[in-house]
Design a protein around this nucleic acid. Structure first.
Lengths: 210, 210
DNA sequence: CCATTATATGAAGGATCATTCAGTTTGAGG
DNA sequence: CCTCAAACTGAATGATCCTTCATATAATGG
């Protein structure tokens, strides 16, 4: 995976001492805040550095250029998200399909909601070409995990597992994204999540009765 | 609606002669192509002008600044999309709910697919603050149209119309968007569209049986 | 406590780019 | 054919911003 990332996007060096890790975290955090506050267009290296309480030069010790910073931010986030999905999928092997879907929706939704600021910031972080590679890598991992899970459903076997899986994943992820784009939060979002679950379950029973 | 747009984003002047309209179209088209080809970061006024075969100065007679160009592009597109949805919703008043959903999905999907380059270009066109106002305006129009339609379903009445409507709209729009983001096209996309329809219908019958 | 390496600084360079405006060309109406 | 406004031109301006580098400070291990 790392080998497929465009060479120039890799981090310049890894933090060794503790303070360096702190600096990196501060830079990431500052990036998120500025992205949220002012949008991608206003995101300048100087501003990020200033907000993070470091100097520009420091940032350039860890990132060869600005794009690499945003890339790293997405990378970090998407890998953590993929991890969570993989874990929850593995935990639900052999369970009823309805439980699987509930777990998947809950996990994904919570991951996005827990720090909705980060979610929103990243949705804004500009869809430059390089990010799409990250998104695709995430999609592949998620697909593999959910497919493997659904294949073990204790109460259902799917005539076309790939199709059902692709449908569910696309619908769930897309719905969550759209919910954020429309700024649906709080109780409204909760209701939507419940309805989405109902919908997916209705789809599953429909499929097993066919 | 126009009165709610940030003052400075309005077009500078309307085309009067025929050639001016041609110029404007060329500028929009060039913007789309460059957005698609090189991403929003590489989109410069000079490049757009050059690609459109006009000079920078010409562009600035119609748009007070670059942001206004992107804003206008989104505005154009979203208003046309809202229009299409309103029309199809009106045409399906009084029909069975399943037909309504099919029409809605088909219309939305086709609108996005017909010129998928434009769709993708706009998805990339940077989520700067001002665009979100456009998106919200679109959402309000779409919600109103679909709610009014669903309320007249010949075979179903909904206990919580607003909730069902919000769910359907969010799921459908989100799924389509995600399908594009994952580059699902051709036969795969077709299959997904069919499955999405099944899913929404299953949701509807589930609801009417409750 | 010294040498070495890691980490941090921020002014300056250099490039890009949005925007303007003085002037030219084109079309429309009379 | 003439006049006026509309439409178009593109070099110049000024601002912004990414990136570098020479230098300084802090930690580490011996």
């Amino acid at each position: 995976m790392a080998s497929s990332t465009p060479r120039s996007l890799n981090a310049r060096k890894q933090p060794i001492q503790g303070r360096a890790a702190v600096t990196l975290d501060a830079v990431f955090e500052a990036t998120i805040q500025l992205l949220l506050r002012d949008g991608p267009h206003q995101l300048t290296t100087t501003r990020v550095a200033h907000r993070a309480g470091v100097s520009v030069g420091t940032m350039y010790q860890y990132f060869p250029h600005k794009q690499a910073l945003i890339y790293a931010l997405n990378d970090r986030y998407l890998k953590a998200l993929a991890e969570k999905i993989e874990v929850v999928c593995r935990e639900h092997h052999g369970k009823p399909a309805a439980d699987m879907i509930e777990a998947l929706i809950d996990t994904y939704w919570r991951a996005k909601t827990e720090r909705s600021d980060v979610t929103r910031a990243l949705y804004r972080s500009v869809a430059d070409m390089d990010n799409s590679a990250l998104i695709e890598a995430f999609a592949i991992r998620a697909d593999a995990a959910t497919t493997a899970m659904l294949a073990t459903a204790s109460d259902t076997t799917f005539a076309d597992l790939a199709l059902v899986n692709r449908t569910l994943v696309t619908v769930i992820f897309g719905t969550v994204r759209n919910a954020f784009e429309r700024n649906l939060t709080g109780a409204v979002a909760e209701d939507l999540r419940r309805e989405l679950l109902k919908m997916c379950r209705a789809y599953l029973t429909h499929h097993s009765h066919n």
